[in-house]
Design a protein around this nucleic acid. Sequence first.
DNA 1: TATGAATGAGTCTTCATTCAT
DNA 2: TATGAATGAAGACTCATTCAT
Lengths: 238, 238, 238, 238
Amino acid sequence: MGGVDGDAGSGGEAYSRGRIDKRQAIVRAAFDVFARDGYAQASVDAIAAAAGVAKPTIYNHFGAKENLFRVVMADVGRRATAATLEVLGAFPAEPDDLRAELTQLGRRLTTCFADPVSTSLRRLLHAEIVRFPDLLDEVRAGAATPVIDALAGPLARLATAGHLQLSDPIRASNQFIALIGDELPALTALGTRPAPPEQIDAVVTAGVDTFLRAFGTADNSPALGDPDPHAATTSHPT
Amino acid sequence: MGGVDGDAGSGGEAYSRGRIDKRQAIVRAAFDVFARDGYAQASVDAIAAAAGVAKPTIYNHFGAKENLFRVVMADVGRRATAATLEVLGAFPAEPDDLRAELTQLGRRLTTCFADPVSTSLRRLLHAEIVRFPDLLDEVRAGAATPVIDALAGPLARLATAGHLQLSDPIRASNQFIALIGDELPALTALGTRPAPPEQIDAVVTAGVDTFLRAFGTADNSPALGDPDPHAATTSHPT
Amino acid sequence: MGGVDGDAGSGGEAYSRGRIDKRQAIVRAAFDVFARDGYAQASVDAIAAAAGVAKPTIYNHFGAKENLFRVVMADVGRRATAATLEVLGAFPAEPDDLRAELTQLGRRLTTCFADPVSTSLRRLLHAEIVRFPDLLDEVRAGAATPVIDALAGPLARLATAGHLQLSDPIRASNQFIALIGDELPALTALGTRPAPPEQIDAVVTAGVDTFLRAFGTADNSPALGDPDPHAATTSHPT
Amino acid sequence: MGGVDGDAGSGGEAYSRGRIDKRQAIVRAAFDVFARDGYAQASVDAIAAAAGVAKPTIYNHFGAKENLFRVVMADVGRRATAATLEVLGAFPAEPDDLRAELTQLGRRLTTCFADPVSTSLRRLLHAEIVRFPDLLDEVRAGAATPVIDALAGPLARLATAGHLQLSDPIRASNQFIALIGDELPALTALGTRPAPPEQIDAVVTAGVDTFLRAFGTADNSPALGDPDPHAATTSHPT
DNA sequence: TATGAATGAGTCTTCATTCAT
DNA sequence: TATGAATGAAGACTCATTCAT
C-alpha cells in the first residue's frame, strides 16, 4: 500500500494491456493466498479463483506454481523494501531534535516491519527457506541489506557532524534496527495480530533511549534515568 | 506428554527400545520430517518410515497429523527452552569481569538460538502460525518469555549491586537479546547455514559493548572507542 | 482364454488372498481398457472402475501407470505365447497324413493369432513401441521366438525322417508361419473384426499347399494344381 | 487433396513458401509428431511448433485434431503406396533371369516396407484402429490392395508365359509378399531399428527360393538345396 | 498396540478448443 | 487467413485417514 509499483521493469516485451492486467491480478491474488495458506497448502485453484482467471491462465503466465511463488516473493520483497527505503529517505540530514527524529523514524520503521505485506513475506520466507534456499538471496538482495545501508549513511553523517559517537555505522545501523524492532514478532504474534500502538511506542522509545545512551553526545542528552516507566511487558523473538 | 527433556541431543539414530519408546521415536522422526518438509508437505508416510513404524501406529498414538504436530512442537519448544535456561542459569551471581561474562553469555545464547532445533522450531512456527494460531502461546509459554525473565533477574541484581545502571530490567533483558541475536537470522540464512563463528563473535562483542555503553557504570568501562574493527559485515532481519 | 495362468510365478512373496485377487483383477481390467483405448487414452480412473478397486490401490500395487502397462503386457505376452506353444506341442511326432496335420496346425495357429488377446497385444505393441522400446524384447522373449523354435523342431524331425526336404528349419518355420498367417491382419482388420472362417481356411490351405510344393516329398503330394479356387480375396500387410 | 507425391523425402526442414504451403507444413509436421508420440499424446501445440505456425492456424485449416489426423494418414498412405507401386511398375514384363528379378523386386519391396514413413504409418494404424475403424479402409484403399493387385498382374503374365506354374495369381502375390516381408517387423523392431541389410537379403533370397520351388518351372531351377547358409537368425511376427 | 491394504478427496498440470484482433 | 490469450474438462498421482486382522 506504499504506492510502489510504477517502475514495473519486471515484464519483458510489449504485452497487451489485458495481459499485463491479468498477470498483475494473478500475482496479487497469489500473494494473498500464499500468505493465508502457505506455499504448499495454497492451491492453484484458489489462486485462480481469487484472481478471477482460469487456472490454465496461470500456467500460461508462470509455467508452474513454484515459479509463480518466486515471482510473487520477489515482487513483494521489492515493494516492502521500497516502502522502507522511502521511510529512511525521509530522515532529515540535519535533525533539530535527534531524539525526536530517531523516535519518529523508529515508529515509521516498525510500522513498515509490522505491515501485513512485510510480515507475510517474512513468514513465507521462514516457511519455505528449506524448499527454496535461493529465495532468501533474491528477496534480501532487494530487502534487508539496502535498508541497513540506507540507515548507515545518515548515522555516519551524524557521527561526522559530532551528533553521534560511533565508529562502525553499519553495526550501529543493525543495532538500531534491532533495538526498535526485535520485539515486534513477539508483540504481533509473528505479524498475525496488530500490536497495541502504545506497546510499540514504548519499545521504540526505549530503544532510541538505549541507542542514544550508547552513542549520543551532549547534544541529545536528557536521558534522565529511563524516559518512562510504561512497562509494556515484552518477550523475546521466536 | 511423555516427559521429553534433559538429554537434548536432537540426533535421530538409535530409536526403539522398550515400549513407549515407539512414541518417542515417532515424535523425534516427526520433528525431523516437519523441519525438513514443512507441516503440509510432510507426509505421514515419510514420518512413519523415518520412525520405523507403520502408518496406523502413528494414528493409534496421536489420532491425527495435526495433533502429532502440536505434540512435536510443544516437545521441541520445551527442549529448546530448557537448553537456553541452562545457559542463563550458569550466569554468575557476582561476576568478576562483567564485560567478559556478558560476552560469554552472549556467545552461549547465540549458540542456542542458532541450534538446528531452535531454528527449525522458529521456521515451523512462522510457517504455521496462521493455521495454528494457538501454537505460539503453547510454545512460547515454555520458550521466549521465561528466557527474558530469566535474564532480567540477574540484570536487576547487577543494577541493585551498582554494576549496571538501568530501571527496567525486563526491557534491558529484551534489548540485550536483541543486540546480540537480532542479526542471527541474516547471518545463518534463517538457520539453514552455519554462520562463521568470527562473525557471530563480532556481533556479540559489539552488542555487549553497546549494552555496556548504555547501561554500564565505572566498573566496566574501557569502552575505548569501539572495541574492535573486525568488520563482519551484516545485514538486517528477514 | 486358453486357460493359461496357473504357473503364476509373477508374484513375489506371500500375499494375502485378497491382495493377489485385487492385483489380478487390476491386471485383467487394465488389459481390457488398454486394448480398447490405447495406453495414453486409457485413464487410470477407468481401469480402477473396471477392476472394481479404488485408484490408489492401483498405485499401491504398481506405482505408476507405465509400470502397470509393462506388467500387463508381459502378462498377456506370456499367456498368448503359452497358448501358441500348447498348439505346437500338440503336433504329432509321426503324422500319418502330413498335409492334413499341417493344415490343422495352421488352422489352430491362425486361431491363436486371431485371438482377441493376441491381436490386442499386437496392436498395443505397435502403438507403444516408440514410447516403450524395451517392451518388444520383454514380450517377444516370451512370445515370437519360442514359437518359431517350437515349430522348427518338428520340421527338422520331418526332414530327417525324409518327409520334408529342407536344410534350414528355422527359416522354414518362419516361412510356414508367414504363409498361413501373413494375411490375417488384412482379413481381420488388424484383429478388430472376426474374419470369415472360410477365408482363413482358404489361406491356410493354400499356404500349406505352397509349403508342401516347396518342401514336400513324394509322400505328401496330390497338390494337383491349386487345391481349390475359392478366391477369398486378400490383401497385403498393413 | 493438394496433390502430394513423387518427391517422397519425408524430411522436415524447408517448409514454408507461398500460401497453401502452410497447410503442407502442418501436415508434414503433424505426421512427424504423430509418428513420434502417437495420436493421443501428440499435442496440437507440438504440431504447431514443429510446423512453425500458431495453434489456431491448425484449427482454421483442419477444424479438429481428429480431422488433421485423418488427412495426415490419407496423405501418408498415398505416398507410401505410390512408392511401392513405382517399384512394382519397374518389374520387367519379360525377365531374363526370373530368380534374379524376383530377388531384386523383393529387395526393393522390403526397402519400401521398412521405410520410416511406411512403418510409422503401420504403427499409427495399429494404434488407432479401434478409435478410427474407418481409417483402415481409407488408407488401405490406396495402400495394400493395389499393391497385391499390381504384383498379381505380372505373376499371371509369367504363368501364362510358362515361367511360373500357378493358378491363383492373387494368392501367389500374397504369398510372395508374405515370404519376403513377413519377418520384417521382427527384424526391424517394428520399424524402429534399421535391420542389417544382410539379414533382410537372406530373408528375401530364401523367400524367393521357396517361392520358385513352389511355383517355378524348369526355366528357373537351380534350387540346389537351400541357396545359401547365411543363417541370419529370424523370428516371428509380432 | 501394531500393521498391510484400501480409499475419497484433492493437487498440479496439460490439452483441445475458442475468442478477439 | 493468422495469432496471442484464455479456458473447461480431464488425467496422473498423492495424501490423510480408516478397516480388518
